[in-house]
Amino acid sequence: MAPFKTIRWIVWKDVVIELRSRETLASMAFFALIVLLIFSFSFSMDQRAAHEVIAGIIWVAFAFTGMIGLGKSFSAELPHDCLDALRMAPVSRGAIYLGKVAANVAFLFAVEILLFPMLVILFNLDVVEDLSLLLVTFFLATVGLAAVGTLFAALTVQIRAREVMLPILLLPMVVPVMIAAVEATKGALNGDPPSLYGPWLELLAIFDVVLTIASFWLFDVVMDA
């Protein structure tokens, strides 16, 4: 079957299930909200201080939320051994990978967009008029997180202590994504000229491309026996 069709079917399946159960989206959004609330309690910040740390807070919250979403995307395949069905399916593993990445990016990005207004309110941010670069940052960082995260979720779902192992394996790998995302977000929120934080976006793009390609090939090893 043409790989694009496989990708479309996988995304369709994940999105339909998510729209019916709303398990992942609801738990991710709720979890992220709690993390943000706890941060806002633990730093009593004025607006200036907020600008210094808010980018870090955003990405800590998003990264941990991402762990939930990524873990769920494969643990949802466990009941009734659906993962085995995917592993036995005569389609290219790469297509399954890309389908899962696409679905994960969609979910994570949706939660991020949903939470952004909440952030603005909770931390009294000045909303910059041009949000397009901020959105690009969110998107690129989410793709990076999901590219590696999908591979590791597929890997950890088949071992013991998977809920613990996913963050332990994933977080050191995505250190560059976190650094670049925090720096770029800081720049975009402060309304800096794009030339100042543009290099971080380039780094994010490079990371996305390199690690998506690597994970794409390695996914075959994880799924096949």
Partner: peptide
């Protein structure tokens, strides 16, 4: 095709959708 202990179906899809998805993966 393997008929295993697990039914290889998704809880939140109905029978028609499950069949369509599983068979689509078999082209």
């Amino acid at each position: 095709m393997l008929l295993a202990h697990g039914a290889h179906v998704y809880d939140d899809l109905n029978a028609r959708e499950n069949l369509a998805f599983a068979l689509a993966l078999r082209d």
